[in-house]
């Protein structure tokens, strides 16, 4: 599904990722782990075309998307839930959702009605402004919005960051439900327990490239890897 090969990217002169290779298989959930500042968000941004890749390939279903413009990448089927959630504050919740649903064909899997059933908390918030939501509601809206683009791949950057445990549990349930439906996801997380409970595969970024890769099951027993690359 997503296939990154020898990616180099960063912010102007600051090189952050140099030579990252990573694969996310269709129908599976991949967790990208790594310490603070390892370059997880940077990698996501490069996939979305928000940062230029100075070298390497980013393929989605075999098509190279590196160098394409962001709106084009989004339209090729990637839904993005950014770390900062980025709800549009001057739009109502409904407008935030409708904007995402704009390009979806009529008979799409995800419709406004369905995301509201999926996240019932949003139902009585529809006419609220995007700036009037709690952190948990913002996160749900960010996921709902990405789903409404009807993506074949969902990128989630720290969906549990700064949320109360009860909300984290809710989000976990929802993402597990998406996984059961066969949604391909790439999940960046600091929360090791959350990530490994949800993910099939794990990819650790350290020193700007792949530090370790394997399955969730393996990483749980590899305390040496955890200590070296995650500081757990």
């Amino acid at each position: 599904m997503l296939d990154i090969e020898d990616l180099h990217t960063g912010y102007g002169e600051t090189r952050v990722i140099f030579g990252l290779t990573l694969k996310a298989a269709a129908g599976r959930v991949l967790a990208i782990l790594g310490r603070n500042g390892a370059g997880k968000t940077t990698t996501m941004k490069a996939v979305m075309g928000l940062l230029p890749a100075s070298q390497g390939k980013i393929r989605i279903d075999g098509q190279d998307i590196a160098g394409r413009r962001t709106f084009d990448i989004a339209r090729s089927g990637i839904g993005y839930v950014p770390e900062t959630r980025d709800i549009f504050p001057s739009l109502t919740v409904r407008e935030n959702l409708e904007l995402a649903a704009r390009l979806a064909p009529r008979n799409s899997a995800w419709t406004l009605d369905r995301v509201i059933t999926f996240f019932p908390n949003l139902a009585n918030r529809l006419s609220n402004g995007g700036n009037e939501l709690s952190g948990g509601e913002q996160q749900m809206l960010a996921i709902a919005r990405a789903l409404l683009t009807n993506p074949k791949l969902l990128l989630l950057d720290e969906p549990t960051e700064g949320l109360a445990p009860i909300i984290v549990r809710q989000i976990h349930e929802k993402l597990a439900e998406l996984k059961r439906e066969g949604m391909t996801m790439v999940l960046v997380e600091q929360n090791f327990g959350f990530a490994t409970a949800l993910a099939d595969d794990v990819h650790i970024i350290g020193r700007g490239r792949t530090a370790w890769q394997g399955t969730s099951q393996e990483i749980r027993t590899r305390t040496d890897v955890q200590r070296q690359w995650l500081g757990v």
């Binding site: 979305m48 989004a74 993005y80 980025d86 739009l91 904007l99 704009r102």
Partner: peptide, 25 residues
Amino acid sequence: TQIGAMIRAGVDNDQMAACLGINVE
């Protein structure tokens, strides 16, 4: 209108608007 919502979204955050498939340019 929808184009109005697109413009407001673009003013709020053009990068996120692009991530939803909006051709901000």
